[in-house]
Design a protein around this nucleic acid. Structure first.
Length: 575
RNA sequence: GCGCCCGUAGCUCAAUGGAUAGAGCACCAGACUACGGAUCUGGGGGUUACAGGUUCAAGUCCUGUCGGGCGCACCA
């Protein structure tokens, strides 16, 4: 369709009717209202200034130059300022179903990425406690972004950065050690900024079981260290398990500690120093990030000789670049947004445009139960874990809710609503549409009704507005997917799926697909408005129509399945 | 004080710079002898916080004001 438009423009130019050097990006979208046709373009208006002519005239020129106009379109209209409204021949819509069948799981995929390599880093929670709800949203968003990019032709790797070094880990060890001593009946002072969650005590009990008396022979410092490594193993294992039950898998786990033990951080800082990008002042080392647009320089080594988080983060991102990724995507909690300029400075310090790093910010989740906010406090260790949410509402529902809104807006998540298996719950609304179609296959099979592939079906009977409306919706899925991927916005797909499911349910309620079970006659009302004053036309549900509608259903089902797959949500055959 | 994000129906949120701003929830009124009612149909509801500007065209871009969130560490 776009090529037809392009052909018209070029044709007109050759004839000297248009003079603009290079065309603007050709817009060709499904308009909001059905009476505006199937496709609408605004090119005529955007050419108005460079052509120095009225948009309406330009539109007319374009229309006159559309190649094979009568074979492609039923109707071509020019409206008010210069909209070009096209109504596509039903036969072309019918082709969409064949294309979906031919491409199957690949329908919607594209090659925008041209195999460029992308690293998507997400979750990356400190292994100092279980994942909470916020991590859950980050996980859902990260996975969806990774899958979307993969679907549009990027080579994607998902990575979890383990913050297994530094102060937090020390505090973890100290906290567990303190609880361990309490278990042995010793009164000890709990570390000032220690972790108070009950899981710490559980880990301490595990320490007691696994190490028991062996710990007594060690020095206090060594005991604490043993507590730390064991706690780390336990908690990272827990995180992995939680992610697994949420359906999230990482191809790569990257350890911060490894950057320190391998002296990579040191080397990287030395390298920056030799390039005058690092300087010493008041006993600390500073990264000259202000040279790259950051508002000030940043400490990478403190006066006490410890490296800051930024130091290892520089080394980490440098490592990512060296591994040859063309694009780095970091999914962060929105409270880290102030960190973006300095990380983009890192990109520039290594000679890359700052856009090579894209940060997807995920805002807070406000957890509700039946409309009442569930308060959380990390300090006291009272928070709802991701595990609890998954156990209560299920992984599919949780993901769908996390992905319903733009990641960069606050999200209200009502546990009672999310676990409701009802119409109020958009997850089941979409999944139900899929299951309903599966149910059609079962019923058809039990009655011996054949479900031929669209390619072997006469689709020319699909001319009803509701039928064409569904197909039209299916036809935009690829562009929805591409737009979502380009903007790292999975919520567009959730939104689309709800709309598609709504069309399906409406259709299903209004039209019959399979013939009735008994041999009673069933007629279907023709859509209203077919003729004024006439008897309402009745059409029988012919075997041809059943076959064609089944083909249509199979297309709908495929697209729902593909969309849910991108979001990491299952498409059940029964519910 | 400075920076970033946000402000759209009663509530939660959509809307590549395009036409009469859309869904869901809630509220009200309705629908099949089931191809699964976890569904569908209809209704009320809006000066897109406010004021300017750019544009043929602004919820969208620019400036300012007001309101909310978050950042402004030798924490991560």
């Amino acid at each position: 369709m776009t090529s037809a438009l392009l052909g018209a423009l070029n044709g007109a130019k050759q004839k000297g009717q248009l003079k603009t050097e290079s065309w603007p990006t050709l817009s060709l979208d499904a308009p909001k209202r059905p009476e505006w046709g199937d496709l609408a373009s605004t090119v005529a208006m955007s050419l108005a200034s460079s052509e120095q002519r009225a948009p309406h005239d330009i539109a007319q020129i374009i229309v006159d130059n559309i190649p094979q106009r009568d074979q492609l379109f039923d109707r071509v209209e020019i409206v008010r300022p210069g909209f070009l409204n096209l109504t596509v021949k039903p036969s072309l819509w019918q082709e969409v179903l064949r294309e979906i069948e031919a491409q199957g799981k690949a329908y919607g995929r594209a090659d925008l990425g041209r195999h460029r390599r992308v690293l998507v880093e997400y979750v990356s929670a400190n292994p100092t406690g279980p994942l909470h709800v916020g991590h859950g949203r980050g996980a859902a968003v990260g996975q969806a972004v990774a899958r979307m990019l993969e679907a549009v032709g990027y080579d994607v790797v998902s990575e979890y950065y383990i913050n297994d070094a530094g102060r937090q880990m020390k505090l973890l060890g100290a906290s567990v050690y303190a609880r361990y001593q309490e278990l042995l009946g010793r009164a000890v002072e709990f570390p000032a900024d220690g972790y108070h969650g009950t899981y710490i005590t559980e880990v301490a009990e595990r320490v007691k079981q696994r190490l028991g008396g062996a710990l007594a022979e060690l020095s206090p410092g060594e005991r604490e260290e043993r507590c730390r490594t064991l706690a780390y193993e336990e908690l990272l294992g827990l995180i992995r398990d939680d992610l697994t039950s949420f359906g999230i898998e990482f191809q790569s786990w990257f350890s911060e500690a490894s950057l320190l033990s391998s002296k990579t951080v040191e080397r990287v800082l030395e390298e920056l120093r030799s390039r005058q990008l690092l300087f010493e002042q008041e006993g600390a080392w500073w990264f000259r990030s202000s040279a790259f647009g950051d508002e000030k320089d940043r400490v990478v080594r403190k006066q006490d000789g410890e490296y800051t988080y930024l130091a290892s983060d520089i080394a980490y991102h440098r490592d990512k670049l060296q591994r040859g990724y063309d694009l780095l995507i970091d999914v962060w909690g929105a409270d880290h947004h102030g960190y973006i300029p300095r990380m983009q400075a890192v990109m520039q310090a290594y000679g890359h445009p700052k856009e090579r790093l894209q940060v997807v910010l995920v805002q807070l989740v406000k957890l509700l139960r039946a409309g009442v906010e569930v308060k959380m406090s990390k300090r006291t260790g009272e928070f709802i874990t991701m595990r609890e949410v998954i156990d209560e509402v299920g992984a599919d529902a949780a993901k769908f809710y996390f992905l319903m809104r733009d990641a960069n807006t606050h999200l209200e998540f009502d546990l009672e609503l999310a676990k409701q298996r009802s119409a109020d719950n958009p997850v089941y609304y979409v999944q139900y549409a899929h299951a309903r179609i599966s149910s059609l296959w079962r019923v058809a099979a039990s009655r011996g009704i054949a479900c031929p592939l669209p390619s072997r079906t006469d689709l020319t009977v699909l001319t009803d507005p509701d039928e064409l409306g569904l197909i039209r919706k299916l036809s935009v899925y690829p562009s929805v997917l591409q737009a979502s991927a380009a903007g790292y916005e999975p919520h567009r797909i959730t939104y689309y799926l709800q709309q598609l499911a709504a069309l399906l349910h409406t259709f299903y309620n209004k039209h019959r697909i399979l013939p009735p079970a008994a041999d009673q006659e069933v007629f279907e009302q023709a859509p209203p408005g077919m003729g004024t004053g006439e008897e309402p036309q009745r059409e029988t549900l012919s075997p041809e129509r059943t076959a064609a509608r089944l083909a249509l259903m199979s297309g709908v089902q495929q697209v729902i399945r593909n969309g849910l797959a991108v979001l990491g949500i299952s498409a059940p055959d029964q519910m």
